[in-house]
């Protein structure tokens, strides 16, 4: 009940924030713009619409998670609204979890609406509903939940601007760290290879959640990949949330 109250309050806060609508507007514009882009491209127009549409969902979803998530906890401390909440009979982890779930709910609603626009645009062109697109969208959600957790983690100890930079760096590193795998294969065994291996194990690999290319191009994917990716997302998010809680539980609100 307490977690639900905090989550719903966070949802209300996010929904009444103008930045959300700005991002929503741009995302919707990008999805619709994909149709114009398709007209200018040689090749399969439907694939372009799907590809650009899914990429827009992922990118604008990440921006929403980062720009709103990084301010969530920091604003509560900065504006001292946290005083009256933490002094109530509530554990600090309940507060943090409520904040996380509230932002998750916001993303589900906003990205859900964008997905409907996207699916409608695809439907107008193909006149058929493609359930596989839902799988790609589901993995975008898993990625966004992880980014939300990361944004909240940074928000526990630094300002929104710094947190946004850190979270954005996490997003970019996460989408390029697969390059390390190639590097490991090319390096001979030694210090550099061990270092690359260590980094690859430690750094997030957000490409694990990217099934867009396979789905857009109709390639087959073994179900175990879905399973492992979802599991990876779940445990990584849990790890980040536990880390955030460790920092938050002993923090003085001065």
């Amino acid at each position: 009940m307490k977690i639900k109250a905090i989550a719903l309050n966070t949802f209300k806060e996010a929904i009444r924030d103008r930045i959300l609508y700005l991002l929503f507007f741009f995302a919707a514009a990008a999805i619709i713009f994909s149709r114009i882009l398709a007209l200018l491209t040689v090749g399969d127009r439907i694939k372009i619409i799907k590809d650009v549409g899914l990429a827009s969902l992922s990118l604008f979803g990440a921006l929403m998670a980062i720009l709103i998530g990084t301010g969530l906890v920091y604003k509560e401390i900065d504006k001292k609204t946290i005083y009256t909440v933490i002094s109530k009979p509530i554990h600090r982890w309940q507060f943090l979890l409520g904040k996380f779930l509230g932002l998750m709910l916001t993303l589900v609603v906003m990205i859900g609406l964008m997905s409907l626009i996207f699916l409608a645009v695809v439907f107008v062109h193909t006149f058929k509903f493609e359930p596989r697109l839902l799988i790609a969208i589901a993995f975008i959600f898993i990625e966004l939940f992880l980014i939300t957790a990361v944004a909240i983690l940074f928000s526990c100890f630094s300002t929104p601007i710094l947190s946004s930079i850190f979270s954005l760096a996490f997003y970019l590193i996460g989408h390029t760290s697969w390059g390390l795998e190639t590097l490991i294969r090319k390096l001979k065994s030694g210090v550099w290879r061990s270092l690359a291996q260590f980094l690859y194990t430690f750094l997030p690999d957000l490409e694990n959640f990217n099934f867009r290319t396979e789905i857009v191009h109709g390639l087959t994917i073994q179900p175990k990949f879905y399973f492992y990716s979802a599991l990876y997302g779940f445990f990584y998010t849990l790890f980040i949330l536990v880390l955030a809680n460790i920092i938050f539980r002993k923090r003085d609100f001065v």
Partner: peptide, 25 residues
């Protein structure tokens, strides 16, 4: 507890605000 110079969730109405705190008990 009433803090000094209280700052509250300004996007809530007074009723929503009290309702929110009620649910923390």
């Amino acid at each position: 507890y009433l803090p000094e110079n209280p700052y509250f969730y300004e996007y809530l109405t007074a009723r929503e605000f009290l309702n929110f705190y009620a649910q923390l008990f």
